[in-house]
Amino acid sequence: MSGHNESSQRATTLGVSQETLLGKVRQALGRLAGQAIAAAPKVDPNLVRLATADEDLVALFTKRATETGMKVYRVQAADLLRQIGSILEEAKAKRVACAVGTLPQAVGLNDALRRRGLEVVDWQAQPGFEAQYELDAGITDVHAALAETGTLICNSDAGHSRGLSLVPPVHIAIVRQSDILPDMVDYWLRVRSVTGKDLPSSQALITGPSKTADIEGILITGVHGPGQVHILVVEKM
């Protein structure tokens, strides 16, 4: 083990330098520093795309998401709050937290939940996951959804936690029809121009409830993350 200076605050000198490692790589490849590269393989969208905008995206999303073990409900905007309430009741949830951004359909959500006797926790009150461990359910909107795989995409930002779609045993996701993209290809095209610090630190593509088949191949849900994922697809008004 190499020596370590306890009081050292300067940049770590452990390992090797970037140049040393790159040198070994270049030597193996027979390339020179800064040598031009061949064009990367072209990703033909016609080949890679497995679902197109011509399809009934809500139907496809519903089918695929259901296949992964999530529950999908198609609701009218006016019926959204009532539907959330009944899911929470069924799950016997007492403490919930919401991160629904500026979703117009979810205006008044917190008040509606309180009227039903639920405790609505401010997950932003404490840093990290601390305020989220005791929750019974997390309610979020999504940054996108993918029809081809039945996937929810939940990104971190000022108004969105990494934890609400992960820590509580129940995750309720509100998806607008316009959130549903046909294929993953479409999502990467959307974020293509964004790089570095402008990207969220966490983009979570969620395709099903938390799962394991480690014990004898038997499928168990809810191992670390939520065992139940309820998706409310809000129909166009």
């Binding site: 971190s156 000022a158 570095g196 630190s201 983009q203 938390s210 993350g225």
Partner: peptide, 17 residues
């Protein structure tokens, strides 16, 4: 189930991570 794309540590405006 989870495809987690991580780009850098928690941003100043983010609450967890």
């Amino acid at each position: 189930v989870y495809t987690h794309v991580i780009t850098g540590p928690r941003r100043p405006q983010e609450h967890d991570g």
